[in-house]
Design a binder for these strands. Structure first.
Length: 825
RNA sequence: GCGAGAGUGGCGGAAUUGGCAGACGCGCCGGAUUUAGGUUCCGGUGGGGCAACCCGUGGGGGUUCGAGUCCCCCCUCUCGCACCA
């Protein structure tokens, strides 16, 4: 029989917390150190919160409660990323309106969230689809626009054929849409961009000072893709484009003398003008073919290289040689200048291409052999001394690169430069459910920002939002019609909406003052509370969301709105909870919801089980076979208090009898406090709970071995610490146990227990005795016994003499407080 | 193909700097109490062997008195990048 009735307990304490404002944020309170603990907000599309969300939110709240008990002033908000494609797609499928679905979902999710027992202060809630939020998303857009960080241009962009909208580079995974996995094609469109490239270097440098998972930092670094090299200008020698400059980027300017041809990406703007009459047809056919190929095909490294000769030539600025210009799609339009100089001898791709099309291969870096005329079978890509470079012969590595750059710079034909893989962030979407871009297009005045006092530009509800490829707002009969803010004439609103990642790139700034009506955030408060001290969320956001949030933070810092330039000081990714080996998703039908488990065992059991059954950073496959064990454990904890509450209360003002059981209990207590403290700090909740279990086991053993009349202050204090350790893990139960010990207040306003290091030092030490590295016996020795003496005692102890008999003792290794190893031969 | 990480009992997972491998729990086995409920308590539980002992952290080498931990080679899995000039 268990007396643990979680539902009554949980309801009671949630009510208590609510009525006493226990979780109200106190942002103005400067008496405690601030700790902004933020978990990535969730996405109210079609599906409710599942076990994976619980795994994200529950443990993070445990961490925050632990910090609170350590004396920090905690700010732990929650909200909803309520704009975006999934909600819109879901509404289309269900033939409803995104607003209706979204708001119904939020209402449901709020109820779900309340059962976690987290410290969310709902007065700070954010819903990004509400005008009082997106008004400031629009402000953000205009602030970037005012300062040249938001601009519109025609460019080849990624187009998802299913979502029928453009996508940012980051949203294209292996040539497929990040959301719906449909094919992504290239289209030329006029679109809005945020100038992320202006912060490429800062985004890279900022990675140095933040405590983020190595892997995430590496991914960001790769995404930004900094390469040092040179910009080199080649002049077109013949044809219609004669005299035009063909600009390339290379990381190997030292191989310039080995260039034997040039390559343009099929999308390169010079393709049309450079091509000769007789080659025009072939080139056009090739360009058309390349445009048809999917990103996946084009990106494939195993695919044989293709290309066509353009009929034109360019001049190598280093030696005046005429180089044929080829069009080939192994050069990417989106990287560097979309054109390259080809050095087959020293570049694998050029080597492959030159071999196939029988283009000359000229060695200009001595590597495999000292004779530059000796043919090679593969490109030599390492560095080495230059040859066939006139007076630069013999230079190598960085010296060689610098020398070539110097030569080019002297003639104004190039310069040393740094190229980034990072592209500007494409933020406009031809979809309905997002924040309208606050721009007016006037036939006479051009592109004008909506004046601040006219914000927000409201998103109308009565829109036919089936995706057609055209912005749904365009089809609204009246919405787009507006007077030009400058001349007053008839003008049109911009009909695109912003990428949802814009909403989430600044939400952490809004949380402290979500109702502020005269600005997006309060700079003073934000400067005191941010960067966010602890951010927790899935690793799938390693590039997109985290990069965008960092970018916006850097812009706002540069523009003087905030005093910090990184949004999240410390980041942890929770692992993924899979089901049947696959990620949980509605379409797979493998979503595990928390409701049934909560009904059966209570919220504390589910939360504690999630923390105990999985390594937090690793995640794992869902298996509920152990959840009953956690219920049993919490029952066991509860039962101890039920049975011993009287004895513990009596012990409070009394001296302990002391003795062996006390010593043992003291050791376990301090070991548990130390372990749990260090483990929770590092998000290692499974081992923290183990430490608590050890303490529980020790308490039960102690109870068996001692008389209650002997219990005094130390026992009372031990039980108190035991309650405090479980409290952040099972918060409702923690509060209940606390109330069973005391009569007032919340356990979460009491200090976290301290451990006494000296209690972990035992008087008697057990030394394992090894002979030739194999464990043979153990010996108990008083602490402080000298090395030699320990060795001597070990040699004579128990069965050890049998093991060394008849052998020569070569060495006796005594590692103080660790072990003894006797080496014999 | 390149890069990073991982591989430990039947299972989830532990093991600061090289120092008793398997903490804690599940499951299983045995016992006690209660006996009709996923009860509680106590004990056992890496493998082999009657035993003394032997073997054990993906496989193979190496360094070391001593290796799950460090070094080299190989296998498998996961993740990221994938013509980035």
């Amino acid at each position: 029989m268990t007396g643990y009735k979680p539902h009554a307990i949980e309801e009671k304490w949630r009510k208590y917390w609510r009525e006493h404002g226990i979780h109200k944020a106190a942002l103005e309170d400067e008496s405690r150190d601030p700790c902004y603990c933020l978990v990535m907000y969730s996405y109210p599309s079609g599906s409710k919160l599942h076990i994976g969300h619980w795994f994200n939110f529950g443990p993070t709240d445990t961490w925050a409660r632990f910090r609170r008990m350590q004396g920090y002033n905690i700010f732990e908000p929650m909200g909803f990323d309520s704009f975006g494609l999934p909600a819109e797609n879901y509404a289309i499928k269900m033939k409803g309106h995104p607003r209706a679905h979204t708001e119904a979902n939020i209402a449901y999710m709020r109820v779900q969230l309340s059962t976690i027992g987290a410290m969310y202060d709902w007065d700070h809630e954010i819903e990004t689809h509400k005008p009082d939020y997106y008004r400031w998303t629009q402000w953000l857009f205009l602030e970037l626009h005012r300062n040249g960080y938001a601009y519109r241009r025609n460019a080849p962009v990624n187009w998802c054929t299913d979502c029928r909208t453009v996508l940012a580079n980051e949203q294209v995974i292996d040539g497929e849409c990040e959301r719906c996995e449909s094919e992504v094609i290239q289209r030329d469109l006029t679109q809005w961009f945020f100038r992320t490239t202006a912060f490429a270097e800062e985004l890279l440098e900022g990675l140095e000072g933040i405590d983020w998972p190595e892997k995430t930092v590496a991914m960001q670094r790769n995404w930004i893709g900094r390469s040092e090299g040179a910009r080199i200008d080649f002049r077109v020698a013949d044809g219609a484009a004669a005299g035009e400059t063909l600009c390339v980027f290379t990381t190997r300017p030292d191989t310039l003398f080995g260039a034997t041809y040039m390559v343009l990406a099929p999308e390169h703007p010079l393709v049309e003008s450079v091509v000769s009459e007789e080659r025009r047809e072939a080139v056009r056919a090739y360009v058309a073919e390349a445009a048809k190929a999917t990103e996946i095909d084009r990106a494939s490294t195993v695919r044989e290289k293709t290309g066509v000769f353009s009929g034109a030539h360019a001049i190598n600025p280093a030696n005046g040689e005429r180089l044929p210009i080829w069009i080939a799609d192994y050069v990417l339009a989106s990287y560097g200048t979309g054109a390259g100089m080809a050095v087959p001898a020293h570049d694998e791709r050029d080597f492959e291409f030159a071999t196939k099309f029988e283009l000359p291969i000229r060695r200009v870096i001595l590597g495999v052999s000292a004779d530059p005329d000796e043919p090679i079978t593969e490109a030599y890509v390492e560095s080495g001394p230059m040859c066939r470079a006139g007076e630069l012969d013999g230079l190598r590595g960085d010296d060689a690169k610098r020398a070539v750059i110097k030569l080019l710079e002297a003639d104004g034909q190039g310069e040393g430069t740094i190229n980034y893989r990072l592209r500007d962030w494409l933020i406009s979407r031809q979809r309905y459910w997002g924040a309208p871009i606050p721009i007016v297009h006037c036939p006479s005045c051009g592109e004008l920002p909506v004046p601040d006092d006219e914000l927000p530009v409201l998103l109308p509800d009565d829109v036919e939002f089936m995706p057609t490829g055209e912005s749904p707002l365009k089809r609204h009969p009246t919405w787009k019609q507006v007077a030009c803010p400058s001349c007053g004439g008839a003008a049109e609103r911009d009909c695109d909406t912003m990428d949802t990642f814009v909403d989430s790139s600044w939400y952490f700034l809004r949380y402290p003052t979500p109702k502020k009506s005269d600005g997006p955030f309060d700079s003073d408060i934000v400067n005191r509370w941010e960067p966010v001290h602890q951010y927790v969320g899935g690793a799938e956001h390693a590039v997109m969301h985290l990069l965008y949030a960092r970018f916006i933070t850097k812009v706002l810092h540069k523009l003087g709105h905030i005093g910090f330039d990184e949004p999240f000081s410390r980041l942890v990714h929770q692992g993924t909870i899979t089901n049947g080996g696959a990620k949980m998703s509605k379409s797979r039908g493998n979503v595990v919801t928390p409701e049934d488990y909560i009904d059966r065992y209570g919220s504390d059991t589910l939360r504690a089980y999630l923390m105990f059954g999985f390594a937090y950073i690793e995640g794992g496959d869902w298996d509920d076979s152990g959840i009953y064990a956690m219920f049993r454990y919490l029952s066991r904890v509860h039962r101890f208090m039920t049975e011993q509450a009287g004895a513990i209360a009596d012990a409070r003002e009394r001296e302990d009898a002391g003795g062996g059981p006390w010593e043992e209990l003291r050791f376990v207590l301090n070991n548990s406090i130390k372990g749990a403290t260090q483990d929770i700090e590092r998000f290692q909740f499974n081992t923290a709970i183990s430490r608590h279990m050890e303490l529980t086991n020790a308490l039960y053993a102690f109870e068996l071995e001692t008389k209650k009349g002997d219990w005094g202050r130390e026992v009372h204090a031990t039980v108190e610490a035991w309650v405090k350790i479980i409290a952040p893990i099972a918060p409702h139960l923690g509060e209940e146990l606390w109330r069973m010990m005391r009569s007032e207040g919340t356990v979460f306003d009491t200090p976290w227990p301290q451990w006494d290091e000296s209690a972990l030092v035992r008087d008697m030490l057990v030394y394992p005795i090894q002979v030739n590295g194999k464990l043979r016996d153990k010996i108990e020795v008083a602490r402080g016994t000298g090395r030699d003496e320990v060795g001597a005692l070990a040699m004579a102890h128990g069965r050890v003499p049998d093991w060394i008999e008849g052998k020569t003792v070569r060495k006796v290794i005594v590692i103080p407080e660790k072990l003894v190893n006797i080496v014999v031969s």
